[in-house]
Amino acid sequence: MSGQSPAVVSASKLGLTFQTNDGPVQALSNVDLTIGKGEFVSFIGPSGCGKTTLLRVIADLEKPTAGAISVNGMTPEQARESRAYGYVFQAAALFPWRTIERNVALPLEIIGLSKAEQADRIKRTMELVNLSGFEKKYPWQLSGGMQQRASIARALAFDADLLLMDEPFGALDEIVRDHLNEQLLSLWDRTNKTICFVTHSIPEAVYLSTRIVVMSPRPGRVTDIIESTLSRKRPLDIRETPEFLAIAARVRDGLRAGHSYED
């Protein structure tokens, strides 16, 4: 489907080398990737393979040192300035002096929404991540998983068409994770958002994605891109079907190949 729809993210020969005190670290090299509108793309790969770095380049939090990238047909900087995406960080990054509710309201205050609109979006997204009743709590009064859910609510309340999520469910237990996976899928299906999703879990990647990008480290690069044949509507028990397991096996093979290359 990436063929027909306009590209939301398009990278070619993308590379990024960090200059560190111990010499240059090549975090990304030769990444070619096109993500179409409405796609759900997962990035999977071992720790340190540059998943976060790639997401940060798309978000204009890091400047590439080689190649070209465009977001919504603009430079990443212009896309950021036009508030093209919402970003969920690997850690919750909530402000401890604000209640959960005010944390979710933070981006809404910055883009200047009316109080009524703010309240409406807060209520909706807090329900979505099952945090109703915790609006007046401070982040440090909540468990790590609840904090992460609040940070997801904050990104969802921002309501951009592109959602960049860096291991958003890493800190959650299996049941909550399943629930949020379902919620995220149905949100994606309803709103036709484009989602870039970093994960370490093969089942999660296969369950959620229309495409799975397998990466490997040193230098960080894309080793395989797997198109999912699953339909858009996916009940949780699809994970037991042979079709699902076949895709999961391909992803696992891709990850193994990346690892053996390293040895």
């Binding site: 940060r56 939090l61 508030r83 995406y85 990054a93």
Partner: peptide, 16 residues
Amino acid sequence: HMERDLMRTYASGYWP
């Protein structure tokens, strides 16, 4: 850093 990056993703200006 992460908090400042967060504000950047909102294209928040200097004063906000």
